[in-house]
Structure formats: C-alpha cells, structure tokens
Amino acid sequence: MSHNYLTETPLLDYQNPAIKALIAQRGWAALAKGERIGAAYDFVRDDVLFGYNSDDALPASKVLADGYGQCNTKGTLLMALLRALGIPCRFRGFTIDKGLQRGVVPELVYPLAPRNIIHSWVEVQYRGEWLELEGFILDQGVLTALQAAFPERSSLCAYGAGTDCLQAPNVAWSGQSTYIQKTGINRDFGVFDSPDTFYADHRQLTGFRGLVYRLVIRHWMNRRVAQMRAGRVPTIPGGDKNLVPAKSISMEKEAV
C-alpha cells in the first residue's frame, strides 16, 4: 500500500499563504528535524488555545485563523505544519467516552451529548519510529488551572483531560510520545494517511444536533474553557465519582 505522509490535502492545506507566512516568520524551516517538530508542536499547544471550533473537518488554515481548537482541529493544523516542514506524519482516529468532556459541556445539555466522541492524535515519524502526539490539546493555561483545582489528584478524566498523571503529564515535546486525553479512549479506528480520509467515513454533530452545537453549545463550552483558563474551574455534580478515568484501550504500535 502506498502512503502519502507528506502530501497536501484539502484539510492539510499547508500551501495556504497564512501557513507559509507563519513558517517563514518563525524561521522554522532552518531548524534541525527534532527542533522543527518541537516548534510546530509548541505553537499548536500554546499559541492555539484549547477551544471548540464549528466542525472537526476544518482546513488547517481555518483553525489557524480561529486561533483555537480541540483534539481534532489542532491535530489537523499540527499535521499541516509538520508536512510543510518536511516531517512525515499520519492521523490516528479514536472515540473517547463523553465523561472526558464533563465540566466543559454544560450540565444542562451533557445528557444529550453522544456517549462516544470522535477523537484523534497525530503520529510523527522521527528517528526511525512513529511517535504519538496528543499532549498538544490543552494549552498551558487550562492545564495549570486543572492542576491547581485538583492538587491531590493524579488521575482525572473530565474537563478535557484524560490522564493518570495530572500534576506532571507527559505533554512537552522531548523526542517522545505525548498524551493528555489517552485514558478516555474507548475505541481505536486505526491509522489514516490524512484527516480527510478519516472524516469521509466518520463524522459527528450533523443534522439538527450539529446545528445547535455550532450555533449555541460550542460558544457556551468556550466560555467555560475561558473561565477554566482564568482559574475558575466549574464544579461537577457528584464530585470525585464523576472524575474517574474510563478504561483505556490496549494500544499496539503500528509497524514502521
């Protein structure tokens, strides 16, 4: 099977002028390979704030223009930047239990949310192996607020985080895999050359439910995320019993 891990696609639109200008302004192309990965990763993690866009299947240039994103949209932007920098990368699709979004999704509409929510991470080829990059989803402001709100907790599966090491999660690029939502994963769809291929068959938030999400609910969620970033983490009814991580699936590495 032929794979296209450097190809531009409608979603990975890295020839877009805004993306090309960003790379040129930052001087990323002149860096060594590991530093190129780290520069793109750090930008997507902290310069692009955690938040909810109008759809999962947005072009990278639109995510960049929004200035915020979640797992799927931030991942699309990261993949576009990596491919523009000559770094082979691919998409891996999952679902996560909706409990991971508890506290971000308002309690009034939480029961209406689908049990399984589309999730993804980026796999990057580096030093002869595929590394899994997921730790870019929460910006440092949101992560710091959660750490301060739950100083005694190690495991947390809520507020957009799914980790067993909340106080010291593996989210910084150091040439290794990174994670921040892994413990919420409950289904693995496997590896895809691009997000375009995945979203051709896997979509959520369609029809009337999708319209309500785009026009109302996501803005509500974004306000709650902004409150979290400011140190005001919403209380979840039921307390600790609703913060227990879902059982993570067993992950097997793909062959290089």
Rank of each mutant, 00 (worst) to 15 (best):
S2T: 12
S2E: 15
Y5H: 07
T9Q: 01
L11V: 00
Q15G: 10
N16S: 14
P17T: 12
A18W: 05
A18E: 15
I19E: 10
K20H: 04
L22K: 05
L22C: 05
I23L: 15
Q25I: 01
A29I: 06
A29S: 13
G34W: 13
E35Q: 13
E35S: 07
I37Y: 05
D42H: 10
D42W: 02
F43W: 04
R45D: 11
D46V: 03
D55Y: 07
D55Q: 14
D55H: 08
D55W: 04
D56V: 01
S61P: 03
S61T: 09
K62I: 09
K62R: 10
V63G: 03
V63D: 11
L64E: 12
L64N: 05
L64D: 11
D66H: 12
G67S: 08
G69H: 08
Q70D: 15
C71P: 01
T73P: 03
K74Y: 07
K74S: 09
G75M: 15
L78Y: 09
L78D: 13
M79I: 03
A80F: 04
L81W: 04
A84K: 02
I87T: 04
P88H: 04
F91I: 04
G93F: 01
F94C: 04
F94D: 08
I96R: 12
D97L: 10
G99P: 00
G99M: 11
P111R: 07
L112W: 12
A113N: 12
A113F: 14
R115T: 13
I117M: 15
I118M: 13
I118P: 02
H119Q: 11
S120R: 02
V122A: 06
R127S: 08
E129T: 08
E132G: 02
L133I: 13
L133Q: 08
L133N: 03
E134T: 01
F136G: 09
F136V: 12
F136A: 14
G141K: 15
G141D: 14
A145P: 01
A145M: 13
Q147S: 02
Q147M: 07
F150E: 10
L156H: 09
A158H: 01
D164V: 09
L166T: 03
Q167E: 06
P169A: 07
P169L: 13
A172W: 06
Q176F: 07
Q176K: 11
I180G: 03
I180M: 15
T183H: 08
T183D: 07
G184I: 04
R187Y: 14
G190E: 08
V191N: 07
V191I: 13
F192G: 01
S194Y: 01
P195C: 04
D196Y: 00
T197M: 07
T197A: 15
F198T: 00
Y199I: 02
G207A: 11
G207I: 09
R214A: 14
V216G: 10
H219I: 08
W220E: 09
M221D: 06
R223S: 12
V225Y: 06
V225N: 10
A226Y: 01
Q227N: 03
M228S: 06
R229G: 06
A230I: 05
G231P: 00
V233R: 02
V233D: 07
P234L: 02
P234K: 00
T235S: 10
G239R: 11
D240I: 09
D240F: 05
K241Q: 15
L243K: 02
L243T: 03
K247Y: 06
S248K: 10
S248V: 14
I249P: 00
A255P: 00
V256K: 09
V256S: 12
